[in-house]
């Protein structure tokens, strides 16, 4: 019940800032979704839940070109970056990504589309509920790069007109995937 409510609030808040939120089931659902966005190569960095799903292999099998070596140049021309999320918070529709590994950062900054897999069980109430997890991240490793992502990249720097997609991803797609991972410390 609580989870349903959080999913609703999360989805509304994320959509309000321009993110797309869809439910998918199984790895096929993810592959289908990514495939229709893939007007160019797709980058799937390493993260725990994708390793379990063998996601990269499944996407490749569907006939999509993957970015594999020279990640920097590859990410710059990739159409889609696919990552998980460690957790999310509902109040603002935010996904949280532990992005210390560089490939996660490349996949979430350079491609035009960022697809995020999120287990709805990992949606917290708000930013304050996120702080204990932040602290755990900091305790577990001495260096880190953590990202709150709320909707696609945006600017209002010309005449205060809101415009989407300036330097970061132009589109943020959040795929709700039950049973993916219930550990907020893993992606």
């Amino acid at each position: 019940m609580q989870e349903e409510r959080l999913v609703t609030v999360f989805s509304e808040a994320a959509r309000a800032v321009g993110a797309k939120v869809e439910s998918v089931s199984g790895v096929e659902g993810v592959v289908d979704y990514v495939k229709q966005l893939a007007t160019g190569p797709v980058m799937v960095p390493h993260f725990a839940s994708s390793e379990r799903l063998k996601l990269a292999a499944a996407i490749k099998k569907a006939g999509v070109v993957l970015v594999q070596d020279d990640l920097r140049q590859g990410a710059a021309i990739a159409a889609v970056g696919v990552t998980g999320a460690n957790f999310a918070f509902a109040a603002t529709g935010t996904v949280v990504l532990e992005s210390t590994a560089e490939d996660i950062r490349l996949a979430t900054t350079l491609p035009e589309h960022h697809v995020v897999l999120l287990d709805p069980a990992k949606i917290l109430v708000d930013d304050l509920a996120a702080v204990p997890h932040l602290r755990t991240f900091h305790q577990n490793s001495s260096r880190n790069y953590l990202a709150y992502i709320t909707g696609p990249s945006r600017t209002a720097d010309i005449e205060r007109v809101l415009t989407i997609g300036v330097h970061g991803p132009k589109e943020l797609h959040i795929l709700l995937f039950s049973g993916l991972s219930d550990d907020p410390l893993e992606m």
Binding site: V17, T94, Y148, T150, P152, S153, G168
Partner: peptide, 8 residues
Amino acid sequence: LLTSYVTW
């Protein structure tokens, strides 16, 4: 409510 990015 929140900016697109908060980076720690």
